[in-house]
């Protein structure tokens, strides 16, 4: 029987792949969004900053920032699913990723945001679920919460155009 890979090797490969996916997208950095990984599960984290406020009187996070956060969480989750398979099967290596060959990101076709509650001035989290990922189109549902995961403050659904695959 084949011995399982050492835990550090596995961890390092997966973390490096996630970093390569997210790194270098200016708008993700501008909004202060990062990603936590547990196995293949991703949680997007929007770190609070005064500049994301949209209503200084409440105060509340800007609805557009909330929408962007959801859209970014959806796009990264969608890419991550494909990247994970490529990486774990050995068809893609971390070296190619780190060599600057970052995967092309899916394009948003349409995105519908439902604002459920006020976004409070503190960190927010989001998880996306890919409802369908086809060769050309994908449908993604995404939810964001703050204090209580059972009480999301916004959710969204969207359609995405998948990048053309090089293997045809």
């Amino acid at each position: 029987m084949k011995r399982p890979e050492p835990v550090q090797v596995v961890k390092q490969r997966r973390d490096a792949a996630l970093a390569a996916l997210v790194r270098g997208v200016p708008y993700i950095e501008f909004l202060g969004i990062s990603f936590d990984r547990r196995g293949d599960e991703l949680t997007a984290v929007l770190s609070y900053d005064d500049k994301i406020i949209g209503n200084p009187m409440l105060p509340a996070i800007h609805g557009g920032v909330t929408g962007s956060f959801l859209e970014i969480a959806a796009i990264i989750q969608l890419s991550w699913g494909g990247l994970w398979d490529e990486l774990e099967s050995g068809r893609m290596t971390v070296e190619t990723l780190e060599g600057g060959q970052r995967p092309k990101l899916p394009k948003t076709i349409d995105f519908t945001v439902d604002y459920l509650r006020t976004g409070l001035p503190r960190d927010a989290y989001a998880r996306a679920r890919v409802s369908r990922s086809g060769r050309r189109y994908a449908s993604v549902h995404v939810e964001a919460w703050q204090d209580n995961v059972q009480r999301p403050f916004a959710e969204a659904v969207g359609h995405f155009l998948m990048p053309a695959r090089e293997d045809g």
Binding site: V25, Y27, L31, G67, S68, F69, E71, L105, V113
Partner: peptide
């Protein structure tokens, strides 16, 4: 604004940045 770019290869602004302007203007 280069800080709002979603695709570093093309320099196209992120759809989310456009969404934020849409939301502000609608409001």
């Amino acid at each position: 604004d280069a800080r709002l770019v979603g695709d570093p290869e093309t320099g196209v602004m992120h759809g989310g940045a456009v969404l934020a302007l849409m939301d502000s203007c609608c409001g």
